[in-house]
Design a binder for these strands. Structure first.
Lengths: 176, 176
DNA sequence: GCAAACTATTCCATGTTAGAATACCGGGCG
DNA sequence: CGCCCGGTATTCTAACATGGAATAGTTTGC
């Protein structure tokens, strides 16, 4: 699991409610939902569904619709449930800037959609970012060229921003 | 030119000095050079060279080596020169976080390698980031859901970090 | 009853990617 | 002298991602 894919996020959406591709696509395009977080094309989303089904995390079932063409409605399997909760409880989330922006926000969104507590998720993310910040600050102090130094300073600065932002997350989620 | 590729950076390296693929690869892997900025595999780099040659920006010339297999040494064409300087003087550089981290740092590295002034480059990047920050802050104030609001707050926070970091860039480059 | 718009999914050509495979050379070693 | 090894330099391959067009069914407006 190296690349950054919406797979687990799809599992989360399906855990909240069985859906078909087109509905999921809407979640990923509506800016009030995940549209600001992910930017998925049609084929990408249907690719994810195909992959998840192949891996046995979800089960598709062709259903006739009263209004429109037939659709394939997907449901979580037990394996999918397990994978989803492993993802939500990830002890050491990635602290790459992009991943925080995408994965962490997705986790938060899914946890809230499932009415699960979010404080542990935020806390683990904060810890991971703090560790990474320290690691990079140490590397920064040993940089051997100005470009290396500037690059590391950039990432440290970004992580400081993330940490500050995580604080506002905590505040907002506490006052809910 | 939508995706984020090292094409222009390669042009810059070749402008400083004619090189073959393996040497370029070294620049992109040595952490004291561009190794912290880009993470390129062999085939990626050779793909870039093939593309640039197909587009007429560079010219390859097979050379026998005294120590090792023959190599293809690349030189900038006039078109390549033009493209490079358009890239260096880009009036409205992207302010996506990832692009700043990668493209802007590459511009800086190349400008310094070519002994060109850097202050205009930094200034244009700062202006672009400021504009984008204001645009996103305005969108943030109109967010219609908590996830949308958090996402926009994240990016605004990151851009604030970028702006602070650009200041330290200016200081460091001035004291040179 | 026909066109247009919406719902839903698949297909296709192109490009990207990691990593294996190839190939060439000089030097050390038995 | 023959051979293998490690560094140099590039190409190949198979798998996967991507955007956008194509398909196809259904309702709605006129």
């Amino acid at each position: 699991m190296s690349a950054i894919t919406p797979d687990e996020t799809v599992l989360g959406l399906l855990a909240a409610q069985a859906r078909h591709g087109y509905q999921l696509l809407d979640c990923f395009q509506d800016p009030r939902k995940l549209g600001r977080v992910w930017k998925l094309s049609t084929s990408q989303l249907y690719n994810v569904l195909k992959r998840l089904e192949r891996e046995g995390a979800i089960v598709g079932c062709e259903v006739a619709s009263e209004s429109g063409p037939p659709r394939t409605e997907y449901t979580l399997s037990a394996a999918g449930q397990a994978r989803l909760s492993a993802w939500l409880n990830e002890p050491n989330p990635s602290s790459s800037i992009r991943r925080v922006r995408v994965e962490f926000l997705s986790r938060l969104f899914i946890a809230r959609a499932l009415a699960l507590p979010t404080s542990a998720i935020v806390h683990r993310q904060r810890e991971a970012c703090l560790r990474e910040r320290e690691r990079l600050a140490a590397e920064h102090s040993m940089a051997q060229s100005s470009i290396e130094s500037l690059t590391l300073a950039f990432v440290v600065e970004q992580l400081d921003g993330v940490l500050r932002w995580l604080s506002t997350c905590e505040t907002l989620l506490a006052s809910n």
